[in-house]
Design a protein around this nucleic acid. Structure first.
Lengths: 250, 250
DNA sequence: CCAAAAGTGTTGAGTCTACACCCATGA
DNA sequence: TCATGGGTGTAGACTCAACACTTTTGG
């Protein structure tokens, strides 16, 4: 698509402030773009991050976020979904853009700017550990992150900070749980993300008073205590409440 | 910096999932990167956006965000500050990164990915209207935005959405006001950003109970009503409160 | 019966909302 | 003396935190 652009050394994109006069426009088209995916899941009472092990240099052997270069004519969201699909088989996952990282020296091979994307996935929708890439793909606990390749620790920490803010104002936590879950699981999840504890009775009263949960009329089985009711998130109820100005707050 | 990189057609950056084998690495280094600055100020009882008028194609004559291409060896934050300085003379302004925009066809000359940056500035620190670029630079009310060049409307709307969230959880509104301000001005500001109204007595009680404002012992002069006390934001108090777990909420 | 987690009720402190009212200044 | 916005007090509704208590299951 940019093969046809003028190669005149006078061509300057028309900037207003004179910074680029005399610099040929080609000099600016030397960047590569990549996407890195922060895939979070909730697993064994903790928030987990999906990482791969790099098979080649640079950072061979280190753990890293699943990521790849973007094709010159490929949209970033598509690239993020392509990477996610190649890795996990997951399709149509809603990925949210996080920050971009463009430190000049962040990649040894050249100027590679990367855009972070993140998604919360539920273990009942997909478990990457069982995939054909199993040997290369592992969940790590976000509280025990290893040193990741490139600036990936920074990317993850940014996503976690965003998540902790967003989860208090939007009902996104449910994406991490199975379709049917108990109030105890929901509370554990919020406690894991926000790294705090809630009073059981108060947490229940608050969440139930929002009318966002549908009672599935089912219960846990085979547990060595009183079986809990199973609820599901009522997306329709949330949408109609939200349009009436309701705001989710935890 | 990336002049020295290998030009072997086998070089693939070492990706895990086979997407790029056989594609020469040079093909990926065809992107340009730009920054676009969303500069917001508070002026005549409304939130205003700083825009320039483009002097050249594409989008000649349209209003646009101040922005420019990033040099191949320039960090993005530096580029954003360079643009801001070129335009307004302002230095050392803290700019926050917003989202990135990379639609394949967003720029006619080639694949240009842009990163949004935003900043809130106070009219007593700088008034771009009085600068040497005056003819090209105007404030527009964010509630009456014209059609901007490229995808700049989208960039602005994203920043405004972020601002409306952030302003409720962090005391960033003060950056838009003069150093000394009245509680009435502060309330008007919050009402403008959040597009709502607050009860005067309750707003005052809430904000004063946070102990974030320092009474300057000064008052308004030459007003046709009881002169209001002038307050300033107490950054030190905020920092020490924040470390004790205090959370700002409006 | 016990352990464990589900699930409920109460109480008092604290916060929020609405609204009425007084104050100081310039015109 | 009036208009204008600054500034305050209070009552009732509402929300929240703490904690004690009952219920239902498997072992």
């Amino acid at each position: 698509m940019n093969e046809e652009r003028s190669s005149s050394t006078e061509d300057t994109l028309g900037h207003q402030f004179g910074a680029f006069y005399k610099i040929p426009i080609e000099k600016f088209f030397q960047f590569a773009l990549s996407v890195d995916c922060v895939i979070l899941g909730y697993h064994e009472n903790g928030l987990k991050l999906l990482v791969i092990e790099r098979g080649t240099e640079p950072h061979k052997g280190k753990k890293a976020l699943p990521g790849d270069l973007v094709y010159p004519a490929e949209d970033m969201e598509l690239a993020a979904n392509r990477v996610l699909k190649d890795l996990t088989g997951l399709e149509n996952v809603y990925m949210t853009q996080s920050k971009s990282y463009g430190q000049v020296d962040r990649h040894p091979i050249g100027r590679v700017v990367t855009v972070g994307y993140y998604s919360l996935i539920s273990v009942d929708r997909y478990q990457p550990l069982a995939s054909s890439w199993a040997a290369n793909v592992v969940w790590v606990d976000v509280n025990e992150l290893p040193l990741l390749a490139f600036d990936h620790n920074q990317i993850v920490n940014q996503v976690l900070a965003t998540l902790r803010e967003r989860v208090r104002l939007q009902p996104i936590g449910f994406e991490l749980l199975p379709k049917k879950f108990t109030l105890g699981q929901l509370q554990e999840l919020y406690e894991a993300i926000l790294n705090t504890t809630f009073d059981k009775a108060n947490f229940r009263k608050k969440i139930l008073s929002m009318n966002l949960l549908k009672d599935t009329k089912e219960r846990q089985t085979d547990v060595a205590h009183r079986p809990a009711k199973l609820f599901s998130f009522d997306k329709k109820a949330y949408e109609s409440l939200r349009q009436q100005g309701f705001s989710f707050e935890m």
